[in-house]
Amino acid sequence: MTTPLIELQRVRFDYHDRTVLRELDFRLAPGDRVALIGSNGAGKTTLLHLLVGLKRPSAGRILAFGCERASERDFHQVRARVGLLFQDSDDQLFCPTVLEDVAFGPLNLGRSPEQARADALETLDHLGLADFAERITYRLSAGEKRLVALATVLAMRPEVLLLDEPTNGLDEATAERLIAHLDGMEQAMILVSHDWPFLARLATRAVRLVEGRLVDAILHSHAHAHRHSHPHPHSADELTGPHTSLEHRHPH
């Protein structure tokens, strides 16, 4: 068995005397693309934030790249190798121009301004955002912001990608672009999303966060994995699993 990139051992997390995660074990192997699903408020975002040290567990161990990580200093190295895409891109973009924002990470990693600029431009070009370099970040549309936020993460050339609802608020064409791009990448990923078609296209396995623990889930692909609605009866127990058709999310 290959050594995992990231491992959580019996991790507990309490938030305002509510236990969000309890005795949670998790392993992310190289090449894994794990769909992390669960109801609203189940602790999916918390789990991602634990992995990069933005939150600290109340108990348990976090191992990343073969070492136990506990202090802020430990996590500096982790953050250089693990890219987190935030749920709200407005939280992520803060520089005046797109180019400066994308170059922010590379500069922090100690690359020279010339190298950082080249990295940023290359990443933007790769995402089809070459014309965006001089745009003002707060004047971008929601979809553009999400892609630029992804560029800011990818410019650091992370080995692991943590994506927190990446397709949220994206139109179909933009989502498709994002999926196609992610599909071409070899990095291990954790995908938090409620967008079943997105998960079905990318994920290699799925885990569900239930009452603070992770249980394996099955991500099955329907033959009709498309997004228009048509009558399609589901039994109640079927709806508890991840699904590639969206019908049951809309009344019809």
Binding site: H76, R79, A80, F86, D91, L107, P113, V153, M156
Partner: peptide
């Protein structure tokens, strides 16, 4: 809350209290 999330996002991208400038 937003300022805290912004700070988190900056830390995720390796921010340690120093901003580097791109412009020449």
């Amino acid at each position: 809350a937003r300022a805290e999330r912004l700070m988190d996002a900056m830390r995720c991208r390796g921010f340690r209290g120093r901003l580097y400038r791109l412009d020449t």
